[in-house]
């Protein structure tokens, strides 16, 4: 068992290392200096307090999006709709942030709860369709992404603004930003959302590992028929899993709406955070703690990548290649497992 756990940790680590090495090879082949490239990347992610602030800011929604994907996955559902749930959460959070003027202790939690509720509703629909009519959740969630994108654009145009392209700024009482964090990180967009996302990770771990509901959810994920036979309500658990997953994604949207941007604007396309969340969950082994580590890695890669073109002349697209390679190696973990067991056998 403990050996198995060790392999579970080693596989993603090796995948990351292999991804970085393969990325270096790609850089050499295309005529760039990989050492300069990666040191620029490191500097751009952790080089000084401003960059650290930006990296943590980017990590925040990644953790929540990763949790959303992982939660559904542990129940045997593949939630591709995190992106859409994130968008409606973003919209709901900003809506509450703009429409009301309340003391901070009420306003901020209310905005976050609204975001979670909106995301949960967006997750409920595919969950219900799956439980009641056995419609595959992958198809429904993909379509719900587009509905979320265009509905929120329409709402921003007609309700939150006068045919404009963005909403007003939220009231300071709903904002996650703080002057203290800004002064700490030399005016980065770092906000208190990171604390919320870490709490969310603990909540997910506790819910899944320590409660009866969590046990049932995981049981449904392992084997629906066995769970049904054991007297669990499979349909109820499917809907519940999608609702909780959607709530995590909605709160990820609140992080963007209440922290990073403090408003919401008409989007021409998806933010990409929800889709990156799938990769985060995969790399993090669908475990709360693993997801935090994976989110830090992806956040650092994304923010650090911005430094690469100016400091090392390496195009930012290369980081997307590195990320893709890491995911490739995680997905093909069978290969790494094979090599690991072979090494172990030889060691014995």
């Amino acid at each position: 068992m403990s050996e198995n756990r060790l392999t579970n940790i080693l596989v993603p680590v090796f995948a990351v290392i292999l991804g970085i090495i393969a990325g270096a090879i790609v850089m050499i082949v295309s005529g760039y200096d990989p050492i300069a490239g990666y040191s620029a990347l490191l500097y751009g992610a952790f080089g000084d307090r401003y960059y650290i602030g930006e990296t943590i800011r980017q990590v925040t929604p990644y953790i929540l999006a990763g949790l959303a994907v992982a939660f559904a996955f542990r129940t045997g559902l593949f939630n591709i709709g995190v992106e859409g749930q994130l968008i409606v959460g973003w919209l709901a959070a900003v809506w509450v942030g703009v429409a009301f003027e309340l003391p901070k202790v009420i306003h901020l939690p209310l905005a976050i709860i609204a975001a979670g509720a909106a995301g949960a509703l967006w997750g409920f629909i595919p969950g219900f369709l799956k439980a009641r009519f056995r419609v595959h959740e992958v198809i429904v969630t993909i379509m719900m992404n587009y509905i979320a994108l265009y509905v929120s654009n329409a709402v921003i145009r007609s309700v939150l603004s006068d045919q404009g392209f963005k909403s007003e700024k939220i009231h300071p009482s709903a904002s996650l930003r703080s002057e203290f964090l800004q002064s700490l990180t030399d005016y980065s967009t770092l906000h208190y959302g990171i604390i919320i996302s870490l709490i969310a990770a603990v909540v997910m771990w506790f819910l899944l590992e320590k409660t009866t509901t969590g046990y049932e959810l995981r049981a449904v994920g392992f084997n629906q028929h066995a769970s049904h036979y054991a007297g669990m309500n499979v349909n109820r658990n499917i809907i519940l899993a999608m609702v909780i997953s959607g709530a995590f994604a909605g709160i990820a949207g609140a992080m963007e709406g209440l922290g990073t941007f403090e408003n919401v604007s008409v989007k021409a396309g998806f933010t990409g955070v929800g889709f990156d969340g799938i990769a985060v969950a995969l790399l993090g082994g669908n475990h709360a703690f693993g997801i935090i580590l994976a989110a830090v890695l992806f956040g650092a890669l994304k923010v650090g990548a911005l430094e690469m073109p100016s400091a090392a002349d390496v195009p930012t697209e290369l980081v997307d290649i590195v990320i893709a390679l890491i995911i490739f190696f995680v997905a093909s973990s069978y290969l790494i497992r094979l090599v690991l067991t072979r090494f172990k056998k030889e060691g014995k």
Binding site: G44, E54, Y187, T271, K302, V303, S310, A311, D313
Partner: peptide, 23 residues
């Protein structure tokens, strides 16, 4: 082209605008 001369930074998403300007 580069630091101390003339340069550009490309944004991948609208979250990058502030980061790039600050950079």
């Amino acid at each position: 082209k580069g630091k101390g001369g003339y340069d550009y930074l490309q944004s991948q998403s609208d979250a990058d605008y502030a980061t790039n300007l600050n950079k």
